[in-house]
Amino acid sequence: MKHPVIEVSDVYRYYGEVLAVDGVSFSVRRGETLGLIGHNGAGKSTLFKMMLGLIPVSAGEIRINGEPVRGSGFRELRRTIGYLPENVVFYDNLTGLETLQFFAALKNCDKRDCLAVLEKVGLSHAATRRVDGYSKGMRQRLGFAQALLGKPRLLFLDEPTSGLDPEGIREFYRILHELNADGVTVVITSHILSEIQERVERLAVIKSGKLQALGTVQELREAVDLPLAIHLILRETAEAVRTALQGVALVKLEIAGQNVVIECHRTDKMDVLRRLGMLAEVDDIVVREPTLEDVFLGYARES
């Protein structure tokens, strides 16, 4: 079994008397994209900074490719890591290309790769324009470009799609998919939960510095036990629906003319669908699973 790329083991971080990260443990596999989600102040950015070695842990241990973040060998290892902070800041008097060349020098990367990276993120047309003329979305693309310098094997991306339009978001995740296929590991945070729910392998839910849940979207749905919704369109009367569902412990049954909304527990889903499938009055059935936002709010309400 391959060694995890990231191992976070019982990590704590105090700021004075404030406990920002409270005994968090998880690992990330090679080529995986892990999403970190949580309210503002939940501890996500602090975790990022500790995994990057920017701030020390108060207790516990973090290893990247088996190397302790606080170890002597991590400085060299950090060259294989790309990082996009939530609020990226550039020198406005430099062009996009000059900005990337500046970061390439800091990372000891080949400056000849800068144009290719700009093209990869869709900025080649603005390579010679000063950054003070860039839109927010263009600045975000430039930030992503600097994170990709040196062909990193591990990426930490904090709110990476902020300011991007829908086409830019889709292109961003296309690039991430290609990187994953090449074995690059990604840890990403986003407040736009609908955007990431189908684009990450697993999610870690952080609340008040603690790891509240870890798993795939479907695993989290099942663990939080939220009801799913079934929408029906009927040809005629809804009375047949009431009759068919007698004896099932529904969460909700709402009838408005020919439109019916049923909410039921996951364990009753197949029984409900079998009963509805026998009705000639049903024109259409749509099953709506709880969204990632529903799941997140479900965990957020837990004590």
Rank of each mutant, 00 (worst) to 15 (best):
M1P: 07
M1Y: 01
K2T: 14
H3I: 02
I6W: 03
E7V: 04
R13F: 08
R13C: 01
Y14G: 01
G16Y: 02
G16F: 11
D22I: 13
D22C: 00
S25H: 10
S25N: 09
S25A: 15
F26K: 09
S27H: 12
T33V: 14
G35Q: 10
L36W: 05
L36Q: 10
H39W: 04
N40G: 03
L52Y: 08
L54W: 05
P56W: 04
S58F: 06
E61P: 01
E61S: 14
I64L: 13
E67S: 14
E76N: 15
E76S: 11
R78P: 08
I81C: 10
G82E: 05
Y83M: 00
V88K: 02
F90Y: 09
Y91W: 07
D92Y: 01
G96L: 03
G96S: 04
L97S: 04
T99M: 06
L100I: 02
F102H: 12
F103P: 01
A104V: 05
A104L: 02
K107C: 04
C109W: 06
C109Y: 01
R112G: 09
R112S: 15
D113T: 15
C114G: 07
V117D: 01
E119K: 13
G122M: 05
A126Y: 03
T128A: 13
T128F: 09
Y134L: 06
M138P: 03
R141L: 03
G143K: 05
F144N: 05
A145G: 06
L149M: 09
P152T: 00
L155H: 04
L155P: 05
D158C: 13
E159I: 13
E159M: 07
P166N: 10
G168E: 02
Y173V: 00
H177P: 00
H177K: 07
L179S: 05
N180A: 04
G183D: 01
V184T: 14
T185W: 03
S190H: 10
H191D: 08
R199G: 08
R199M: 11
R202I: 12
A204D: 09
A204Y: 02
A204M: 06
G209R: 02
G215K: 07
T216H: 09
Q218Y: 09
R221L: 14
A223G: 10
V224C: 07
V224I: 15
D225T: 12
D225F: 03
I230V: 15
I230Q: 04
R235G: 06
T243Y: 03
A244I: 01
A249E: 15
L250C: 10
I255M: 12
A256M: 14
G257L: 12
Q258R: 11
V260Y: 02
V261G: 00
C264T: 15
T267I: 12
T267D: 11
T267R: 13
K269A: 14
K269N: 00
M270W: 12
M270N: 09
D271G: 02
R274S: 08
R275F: 00
G277Y: 11
D283H: 01
I285K: 01
V287T: 15
E289V: 00
E289C: 01
G298S: 09
Y299A: 09
Y299S: 11
A300G: 06
S303H: 15
